[in-house]
Design a protein around this nucleic acid. Structure first.
Length: 300
DNA sequence: GCCCAGGAGAAGG
DNA sequence: CCTTCTCATGGG
């Protein structure tokens, strides 16, 4: 990629099991866009970044805004975001051994990884996601960032904005939120922002491995957050790799591929717990990708 | 125009 | 506890 603003390059070597398109178009994140050269640009914790992968050199290249930190911390930052410290080769092997369906899913989406995103952004993004579709969710989030987030410059004629902070959304009124085409979700977001603003949302920054129960309980207490949204926040931003979020696509996959009744989410969760643990959440990511490849009519 | 979307909340049984 | 209805909107 030809940098058109003051960007610095950072490379991470010896990375395998990585496919930028699979990762950034998997529906786990909504702020990355594909560039003509196949790289992906987005904003991570207020930092603009363009991320690409060289399949022959096993190298991830990241062009980003200047980051005021040592190279060691910078590497840790991106390794954490991209989940590079997890051995997906081993996880894929373990999941493939479980059953032939998962083996196919893992083979098809072999470059997927579960990103470690910023919890607040993940929370709001998945409140928006309910009963919507991915292109529209992306549009709503970009509108929200442009209207309430801090401007951090531009890239290729597009304005760049940080995701709005808790305080920025807590002080927004419902009508101005409505301008982002959020529909009935505008109230959920206004209320959730005020709740988190008051209680500090402490857990959102301190993902305690032993605190899964408390994290879920807290999330479910927020406006507009039910089981599915809570589980997505836990999996995609709180490092809960064994959590198995169930949406319409996963329900479809568990029905068509595993023969479980499409409305029996409890049976699906039990099956996941029994067969995919401790990688239920990662298995879910492969399955989500796989059933969408097959199409909604697959196996019907 | 019609159906659907990475659901949640409230009401009613 | 469970089932059903409603919510606002745009992408395909």
């Amino acid at each position: 990629m030809a940098p058109t603003r003051e960007l610095t390059k950072f490379a991470i070597e010896s990375v395998r099991d990585f496919d930028a398109a699979q990762i950034f178009e998997s529906g786990q994140c909504f702020r990355f866009s594909r560039e003509p050269d196949g790289s992906y640009t987005g904003v991570v914790r207020g930092c603009f970044a363009n991320i690409s992968y060289d399949n022959e050199e096993d190298r991830v290249a990241i062009w980003s805004d200047y980051m005021p930190m040592s190279d060691a911390l910078r590497e840790r930052f991106w390794r954490n975001f991209l989940d590079l410290d997890r051995d997906y080769r081993e996880i894929k092997r373990a999941l493939s051994d479980k059953d032939p369906i998962m083996e196919k899913a893992v083979t098809a989406g072999g470059g997927l990884r579960v990103l470690n995103q910023e919890p607040w952004e993940t929370l709001i993004s998945f409140i928006i996601s309910q009963n919507s579709n991915i292109p529209r969710i992306r549009g709503c989030i970009e509108a929200l960032c442009a209207k309430f987030g801090q401007r951090i410059g531009s890239f290729e004629n597009r304005g760049l904005y940080a995701f709005p902070t808790v305080a920025e959304l807590a002080s927004a009124n419902e009508e101005s939120l409505g301008a982002c085409k959020l529909g009935y979700r505008a109230r959920y977001i206004a209320e959730a922002a005020r709740q988190v603003n008051i209680d500090g949302g402490a857990f959102l920054d301190t993902a305690d491995e032993a605190n899964t129960q408390k994290a879920e309980e807290y999330l479910l207490s927020l406006s507009g957050v039910g089981p599915k949204v809570a589980h997505c926040v836990m999996l995609f931003s709180l490092k809960k790799a064994d959590i198995f979020p169930i949406d319409v696509w996963i329900a479809r996959a568990m029905n068509r591929l595993y023969g479980i009744a499409e409305d029996d989410h409890e049976a699906m969760r039990a099956y996941a717990q029994g067969h995919f643990s401790p990688w239920g959440g990662i298995a879910q990511t492969y399955l989500f990708d796989y059933i969408r490849r097959l199409g909604k009519d697959a196996g019907a």
